[in-house]
Amino acid sequence: MTIRQTTTTLAAVLMLASPAMAQRSLGPATGTVRLEQVQAGFIASGEAGGGTLRFQGRSYPITVGGLGIGSIGASRSVASGTVYGLHRRSDFAGAYVQLKEGWAVGAAGRGTTWLRNDKGVTLKLATRRQGLQLQLGADGVLIGFRQ
């Protein structure tokens, strides 16, 4: 792991530990994002989906996929939230560290997810889940632009 990746991971861990402090230090919002994903796991987990980035008055379709640890069960989630630190659209695509906590039982379920990439782009997402799942862990997530 490079120093840059280690720093990004540490920053993401600190954000989850203190969301209020993290939000103040991120500066103003630079965009919004909405994601829809399917997730499944038994200790290890996987997820796939897509969504939309709103940045500088335009909408961009995106894809999302990842692998991680800290999940048991399966769920469908819809997440929406704020993007911080995005100055160029091209900085949005790439690998993210994701820290998550949440639950789903039937149609009821909520959680919070923080994602950060090595370009300083941070996503704070509120999630709604359906299914049967418990999550508390970390993932590596790849976000790209849909062609």
Results as ranks from 00 to 15, higher is better:
G120Y: 10
T2D: 15
G144F: 05
F42P: 04
G65E: 09
G31A: 09
T9C: 08
V121C: 06
R88C: 06
F42N: 11
A44V: 14
L125H: 01
L125Q: 02
G31Q: 07
K124Q: 08
E101W: 09
S45I: 06
A40R: 00
F145Q: 13
V121K: 04
M15I: 00
T9K: 14
T52E: 09
G144R: 11
Q37R: 13
L53V: 06
A107K: 14
G106M: 03
V38P: 01
A108P: 03
G102P: 05
V33A: 05
A107I: 15
A22T: 04
Q147P: 14
F92N: 01
Q5G: 03
F145I: 13
L142T: 05
G51K: 05
F42D: 08
A48P: 00
R116M: 14
R146K: 11
Q98L: 13
L132R: 06
D139V: 02
S80N: 14
I69Q: 01
R110T: 13
R146G: 02
M21T: 04
S80V: 11
Y96T: 08
V33D: 00
I72C: 07
T32E: 12
T113Q: 10
F55C: 07
G144E: 07
Y60C: 07
Y84W: 03
T112A: 13
R129H: 08
Q147K: 11
L115G: 04
Q133I: 01
S90R: 13
T2A: 09
T2R: 11
G46F: 03
G49L: 06
W103G: 05
R129T: 02
G70T: 07
T122F: 00
V64A: 09
A74V: 11
Y84C: 07
S59A: 12
W103R: 00
Q56H: 05
R128P: 00
S77N: 12
L123N: 01
G70F: 01
Q98T: 13
I43A: 12
L67N: 07
G94P: 10
E101V: 15
L115F: 02
L14R: 09
V13G: 04
A93S: 13
A44C: 01
I69N: 01
F92M: 02
I69A: 12
A11G: 01
P28E: 15
G70P: 06
Q5S: 12
G50N: 02
G106S: 05
N117E: 06
V83T: 07
S90K: 09
V78L: 05
S45V: 07
R58M: 12
T112G: 13
I72L: 14
Q5K: 11
A107N: 13
T113F: 04
V141E: 00
F42L: 15
R128K: 10
G27M: 04
Q135H: 03
M1T: 11
T63R: 03
A104W: 01
G41L: 02
T52F: 00
G70Y: 01
L134I: 10
I43S: 07
L67P: 03
G49P: 09
G31L: 08
V38A: 10
S75L: 08
A20V: 02
V105Y: 15
